[in-house]
């Protein structure tokens, strides 16, 4: 039946190392690849949703990322690095989506309006801190959110973020600093 998944049977592959799974998948093993999809798909979905600002396109971006990964697995030298390699692919796909969505907006446009720094206290108190953080993140200017997400979810270095977004490292530092300061200031409002 289309769209259904075979019954989940516990297999030694489910707990195999990333290296083992990546090696097998590079040799063409679909079962190993499926374990990688289940293991890192959720993080990639969270990540793509965060970068894109909504989950409308998350399915597409994550699917495209895994198809690319499958085709290019042979180029991955160190199978134990498969997680960061996958995060890199989904980053690139997400950023491509953003560019395609708003071709007239320059990716290094840093003049996006800052979110309202004084959200209504009543609202802030009504939600948990995690929900509040999710809300503030969503309200960050796109370029700041992108840098923050690459740094905090994909664990990119400043240099990697700069290379990925085609920005000077100094700009990346500035964007990250602004994102952090905004988040810190907003958090003070939640207490």
């Amino acid at each position: 039946m289309p769209g259904t998944v075979r019954e989940q049977v516990a297999s030694p592959l489910d707990t195999a190392s990333d290296q083992m799974l990546a090696d097998r998948a590079a040799d063409g093993d679909l079962r190993a690849f499926a374990v990688l999809v289940r293991r890192y798909g959720p993080l990639m979905r969270v990540y793509a949703t965060r970068v894109l600002g909504s989950n409308d396109e998350t399915d597409d971006v994550v699917q495209e990322s895994f198809i690319t990964a499958w085709l290019q697995l042979g180029t991955l030298d160190d199978g134990s690095a498969v997680k960061s390699w996958l995060m890199r692919i989904v980053s690139r796909k997400s950023i491509d989506r953003l560019r395609a969505r708003r071709p007239h907006v320059n990716i290094d446009d840093t003049d996006a309006p800052a979110p309202d720094s004084h959200a209504p206290h009543a609202l802030a108190e009504a939600e948990s801190q995690t929900e509040a953080l999710a809300r503030v993140l969503a309200a960050l200017p796109e370029d700041q959110r992108r840098c923050w997400t690459l740094r905090e979810l994909a664990e990119y270095s400043y240099g990697d973020i700069a290379a990925e977004l085609n920005l000077p490292v100094s700009t990346v530092r500035g964007l990250l600093a602004r994102a952090r300061k905004t988040l810190l200031r907003e958090m003070e409002e939640w207490r």
Binding site: P2, G3, T4, V5, Q8, A26, D27, G28, L30, F33, A34, V37, R38, G41, P42, L43, R45, V46, T49, D59, V62, Q63, F66, I67, W70, L71, L73, G74, T130, L133, A134, L153
Partner: peptide, 29 residues
């Protein structure tokens, strides 16, 4: 927040995994 989001994603049905696997081909390897 990450924990919450991951939990939510993990609770999704498995169809998205199936549709990824349906769209890849043995030919690549």
């Amino acid at each position: 927040l990450l924990d919450r989001d991951l939990k939510r994603e993990s609770l999704r049905d498995d169809n998205w995994v199936a549709s990824i696997l349906d769209n890849i081909t043995l030919e690549a390897h």
